[in-house]
Write a protein that binds this DNA or RNA. Structure first.
Lengths: 358, 358
DNA sequence: CCGGCACTCCGCAACTGTTTCATTCACAAG
DNA sequence: CTTGTGAATGAAACAGTTGCGGAGTGCCGG
């Protein structure tokens, strides 16, 4: 369809020059480079080696790929993507943008240089500008687990507001009034949503949102432990926690058990799970569950379908929001002492049994 | 160096024919195909697009890539590989051999078709014949976590015998005599090694190896639960378990806690951890720990170094065995009743406290 | 026995993209 | 005015792949 030679002829340059632009060689005039790039993006050009087109997409990370600290989200996502690739028989390449992209090349140049026709983007809050730039270049891309209002950005995410709200309402229905929130310190739209769900649920139940019960820490086991230490001795007693990510949830539980605080007897914990980490512990974690595998699957299917169907990549936007489910397991129960008085301060509640013993 | 045209000239065929062989087109004579293939493997040929060679290796799985059921081994391995690729600036492709390899093409053909210069192989027991075939074709490859005596196979693995033996000896030193073994049902050399460590440790301590205390089940949470149910009510009492993989270890603990069996009071558990799953639970799992990330790192570094250094891929074998560490945490302790009698049957031991209450 | 047909195998040529080498052109220094 | 230098770029030679057609072979019907 559109070859290097065709582009060259159209612009009255040689194929060599076009190739140089594509590979970001330095010795080409800035004005010429710009003309070539414009034409390339306009045509949705993709290089064919020999006569064959290679069906490869990338899973691109802003920084290091496949971080294990965040629990099972990345591997679960990855396995979903691999399943999705079977539909159109694509292959997957793993890319780190920070590592390989040269500062002076465009994202389109970068991805083409890597021999990739489209890209699934794992996005964090700080990489939003990057995403917008890629979208502006019209390179085929889809963002995982982040929400965008700007046009031209395709994304798929899990809607966690309603499940998170039900989770907090579940705690309230059990009789909890002192409910803490442990939330990721780098805010993305997911976590903003969860925070809002927490506040709304409390508000609708006539409970005040106490800022001192909101703990912002990075998602990790040790954060969960820190949060537990901070809430364990508080008066009025905190009888429940909503932790908005898996590792923090587990850290909370672990530290509680270490200190002899009974779950759910002394403290109710509701968490969030990306995979099946909630099954690793006892009692099983009552949690808002999102299916990262499904996100990856749908993203991969849409991207590869779009690529193999039309030559024009700008066929249509894809913006999908999947549901999460609130799964009741064993870490949330009624607080030990249910009070008949209005939901205000109380101090005599024997919440941590062993600590108050001798 | 060695191009399609060079190979063609040497064999008195046309470049087109060589290309057809490489892409496994059907319309080429079997004898011709074989001659071309031999020549290709002899020269260690790799296709160049344009004039450029692409630095890509694959992480290839016999079946589906990145299974999450086995816990954190795959993602941890993957992140190690990604780190290792930075050294020589290679890229990684994920391949499923079962999905994409056509039955009538050789492994060399398959990998070349995928544009991959070398391959890291995640091997399971049933895929040993495949590995040997790849090695026989002399395609650059390295196997993860499996041991081979056959020449020509490169591998890296973690030696778990000594740590596993120390783990079981640790249990014996604490006073345990009834020690069960929960082991993966599909045996690979790793698990054979762990089984041997178990038997040797018992033997050297003068304890008999009771086959009825060995449970072979697939690595999973539910297997751990099943094992616990099978050992909980046994007489003479089983006071300790050695579980040779992470998920089974966690399943054991979960079910024990569910049934009110105290760990480590009533039952000691020693497990195996590939990543940091031992940190997810309380008490923290006493476990033999292997660093899957380091395996991936070293495999990737060696493979890419070999590829970018010499044109002759058969430069030297790589066989490395890294150490594992036995980490003592909170799930192993002395059995509740230490007996002074010889290590024989006993029946009055109150091992499961709550269950024996009325 | 022969013509026609179908099928297999393979080479030529035309097509991808990339790189090397040489040329052109502007401009500054001698 | 001549010459050197550097940037920009084009022609050509290289890489692998594939459409088309030709040569051979076997088979079947007349």
């Amino acid at each position: 369809m559109s070859s290097v030679r065709a582009i060259a002829k159209h612009l009255n340059v040689s194929p060599a020059t076009v190739s140089r632009v594509l590979n970001n060689r330095s010795n080409v005039d800035e004005e010429t480079r710009q003309r070539v790039l414009d034409r390339i993006n306009e045509l949705g050009y993709f290089p064919q080696v020999g006569r064959r087109i290679s069906n490869v997409i990338a899973l691109a990370y802003p920084d290091e790929p496949v971080r294990t600290e965040y629990g099972s989200f990345e591997p679960t996502l990855l396995s979903g993507i691999m399943r999705g690739l079977e539909v159109e028989q694509f292959d997957l390449k793993l890319l780190s943008i920070r590592r390989d992209k040269k500062p002076d090349e465009t994202y389109t140049q970068f991805f083409l240089r890597k021999g990739v026709r489209g890209v699934v983007l794992r996005c964090f809050r700080h990489s939003r500008p990057m995403i917008l730039e890629i979208a502006a270049e019209k390179f085929p891309a889809i963002v995982i687990a982040e929400h965008f209002d700007e046009p031209g950005v395709n994304y798929i995410r899990a809607e966690s507001y309603s499940s998170c709200r039900r989770a907090v309402e579940h705690l309230i229905a059990l009789g909890h009034t002192g409910i803490a929130l442990a939330i990721h310190s780098v805010s993305d739209s997911d976590h903003a949503e969860r925070r809002r769900a927490y506040a709304d649920a409390l508000h609708c139940a006539g409970l005040a949102v106490d800022p001192s019960l909101i703990f912002e820490l990075p998602a990790s086991l040790s954060s969960g432990e820190q949060v537990l230490d901070m809430i364990a001795d508080r008066r009025p007693a905190i009888t429940a926690v909503f932790a908005t990510n898996p590792m923090t949830s587990l850290g909370l539980m672990r530290r509680a058990q270490e200190r002899g605080i009974q779950i759910p007897g002394d403290l109710s914990v509701v968490g969030v799970d990306d995979g099946d980490v909630r099954m690793h512990v006892w009692p099983r974690l009552t949690a808002v569950c999102q299916d990262a595998s499904a996100l990856g699957y749908e993203a991969a299917v849409w991207l590869t379908r779009t690529l193999s169907k039309g030559s024009n990549a700008s066929s249509g936007m894809f913006r999908r929001t999947t549901a999460t489910v609130f799964e009741v397991n064993g870490t949330a129960a009624a607080p030990r002492v249910v009070m008949s008085s209005p939901p205000a301060a109380e101090r005599s509640k024997p919440s941590t049994r062993r600590r108050s013993a001798p």
